[in-house]
Each structure stands twice: as C-alpha cells, then as structure tokens.
Design a binder for these strands. Structure first.
Lengths: 217, 217
DNA sequence: CCGCATCCGTTTCGATACTG
DNA sequence: CAGTATCGAAACGGATGCGG
C-alpha cells in the first residue's frame, strides 16, 4: 500500500517532497512529460522499478492529483496515466534538476536510457540552423514527431502528417548521436539505425549537442 | 553507513536523484543555503531526522561534493558543513520545487518550521516600497541581517553593522506575519515577538506577502 | 498480455540510548 | 557538541500468481 510518511515541515520544499519525494516518483513524472503512458510502458521505461512499486507510486501520485488515470474508449480498451495541470508544472523543476545532475558521472555497468529521457535532451538542445524540417523518429516501437522551426526543436508523440526523413533507432544510439560520441553513418553501418529521406538533414540536426537536459552517458 | 543504491539510468534527472534523492538530503541542502551550519544546528532544524540519518546524508553529500566539512579555527573549535559550488547550484531547483509544493496543504498536527525556510520565503517576496532599510532579525537564537533595497529583500546570517529596527521572534510567528495570517501588534501583544526601533517599517515590510517560495502553513 | 495483489528477503528509516 | 550503537518498523525489490 502507498506510503504515507511526512516530513512534518511546513516549508514548500518539504511539502513537495511529501508528494514526489518517494523513490521513483519523479521518474514516473518524467516518463509522462510527453503524454499519457500505459502501465506497461512505464514498467518498460523504468526497468529497475518493480511492478508493485509502480502501482504504489501511481496511486500516491493520483491521490495527490499529480497524475490522472484514464480509461481509453472501446477499441484500445486500456488504461493510461497522464499528468494533471499540477503534474505538468513539475516540468521546469525536472529540467532544472536534470541539468544539475549532468555533472555527475553516469552509474556503472547496466545503464538504461528511456526514449523520453533522450527526447527531453533533444528538445532541450538548439538546432544548428533555422531551416524548418519535420522528422519521424521511431524509438522502442513508439513513433515521435520532431519538428525543427523558429530556432527550436519540438517533440511530440505520434505520427507526423509529413516527414522530411524517418529515423528508426534505439534511445542509447540516439543519445550517442546527440552528445557527439557517435555518428549517423557509423550507426547505420553497425545496424543500430535505419534512415529514409533526408539523411543529410538528420546529420545536421545531430551536430547540435548543447544546453541539454537529460541524457549524455 | 551511507546508501549506495542507484537508478541505473543515464538520464540527468536520475543521476541527480542518485545524489540528492534519498530521504532528507534536499532538506539538508535547504538548511545550508544561507551559510555553514553545525551538526546540531541541522539536527535542531530537522527534528524528524535522527542523528544517524543526518550522519549518513552528510557523508553521502560530502562524498558527492555537494557539501564540504570544515573545521573552524581555534576559538570556535567546531565543525561546520557548507555547500560547495555544486551544492549552491541546487538553489534554483529547490526554489522551484518549493514554489510547486505550496499548492499542497501543510502536513497535519506536529508541524515544524525552520528559520531558514521562513527566511527563504521572506527573501522570495517583494518589498511593498523601494525605501531602503536594514533590519536585525533574531530567530531561534541566531541573528540575521535583512536588507531591503533596489526593490528586493536580501537575507544574510550574522549581525548587521547598523539596523533600522530589531525583531526577535520565532519562525512560526514570522511566517504568520509574512503570509498575512498574523499582525505585528498581535504578535507583540501575545508575547511572541519583541521589537525595537522602526516598528512601522517592519509592519510595512510584512504587508508584502506574495511570490514566496518556502513556508505558508 | 495488462494491472495489480501477495509473499518474502533485504535495505533503509526512525527512535532511543550511549560515548569521546 | 558531534556523532556511534542498537534494534524494531517501514519501505523497497524480486518473484510469483491471478483475474480480465
């Protein structure tokens, strides 16, 4: 059953930690930043969290109205978890915390990286030029729309109406492309990525690795 | 002994939580935001934390170079803990988190409030006018200098060189003054505060309760 | 498969007591 | 003052199982 321990401290920081200070809570919120996710999506994205841990955290966050449970209509027949308004307002806190955490070395050996983490990193970086473009990115069997325009990078879940290029890869490879430790031709040659369309545009996009927020192993 | 469990996640958010995600860690950092503190100061400010908990957290934070141990020279003959550069860079994260946490009701019954929390709240609020002034505030047997100037409120530990007024009270009373749930004359009458000097200036200061960050029970 | 409950060993937490 | 020692209670983590 959900945790109900409190700091007994009237300070806003302590009150925030009473709500999202338990283990895994903020990482669950991170995974929901780009949109609703199913229980099993969250479980896959957070492999270290046991299923009962996830159940507890989801219930607590729901009780505090940071997230909301929603049953999808007929054909999908599934339940998703999504951020409420309060939950979305955690985004700047998480981005600031993530930026701060980048100074520490990544944990040893079995390191995981979720699609959401890398895409947060991508969104936080600046495009190298102002040429507008739209890309279809497939990661962990989920499809994302990446739009470059007005000197920023927008990321949304779901299929783009039209794409200049399509990239299929995994979060770790994409992260290596973003932080400069890997190149697109090398990833293609190693079979870690497949591309169709404007490959040169994608290569340009990946030369912009700075001011990020999330990943960088 | 210190915790050494990790999320095994390369994301910056998870790496930050590997360092400051354990229970009480961020509240220890909060208490150090205004300057060095001794073990017993921290223990008093965080009554819910047991001494071995404090010991563990201080050691972990020291190992990650978020805080630093320092032995004071001869006369004081004591040890203090202070933030490092990395630790100070957590301040915006904590302020953002504290602002977010204010939407939740304060915990029930035995609620504590540290001097640092209230003074963070005071510093986060806007003064009602641009008249510069300096106040000596004594809280929990510690002395602080509160300076109003350039439309902001600065707070520092230690004696002011000169003060327009002196206020002695406790964190809870000061917080009530700041959030409008109490008035200075009422606090004086109840014996919860004593004032000397420009009492009218202090009353004006306490009419500015907004955009805060920390307390508000 | 999905969402969750149950059981169980391990880690962490919290309270009290005690020491240099 | 600045911690250590000890111990029961809670939380965590992993495995398994069950109804839809």
């Amino acid at each position: 059953m959900p945790t109900s321990r409190t700091y007994g401290d009237a300070c806003g920081i302590a009150r925030a930690l009473d709500v999202v200070g338990e283990r895994w809570a903020l990482l669950v919120v991170r995974e929901l930043l780009f949109g609703p996710q199913r229980f099993s999506d969250l479980h896959r994205a957070l492999p270290g969290a046991s299923s009962n841990m996830l159940t507890d955290r989801l219930r607590e966050l729901e009780n505090h109205e940071v997230i909301r449970r929603r049953r999808l209509p007929a054909p999908a027949a599934s339940t998703v978890y999504e951020l409420t308004g309060s939950g979305r307002e955690l985004e700047p806190v998480l981005l600031a915390l993530g930026g701060w955490g980048l100074r520490f070395p990544p944990p040893p050996a079995p390191v995981h990286l979720s699609a959401t983490s890398v895409l947060l990193f991508l969104r936080g970086s600046r495009p190298p030029d102002r040429l507008p473009a739209t890309y279809r990115v497939e990661l962990d069997d989920h499809v994302w729309t990446v739009r470059v325009r007005d000197g920023r990078i927008d990321v949304e879940p779901g299929e783009p109406a039209r794409a200049d290029a399509c990239l299929r890869t995994d979060p770790t490879t994409l992260n290596a492309l973003l932080d400069g430790s890997g190149s697109l031709p090398a990833a293609l040659a190693a079979g870690n990525a497949t591309v169709s369309g404007d490959e040169a545009g994608l290569r340009r996009l990946f030369t912009a690795a700075d001011s990020g927020t999330a990943a960088h192993p």
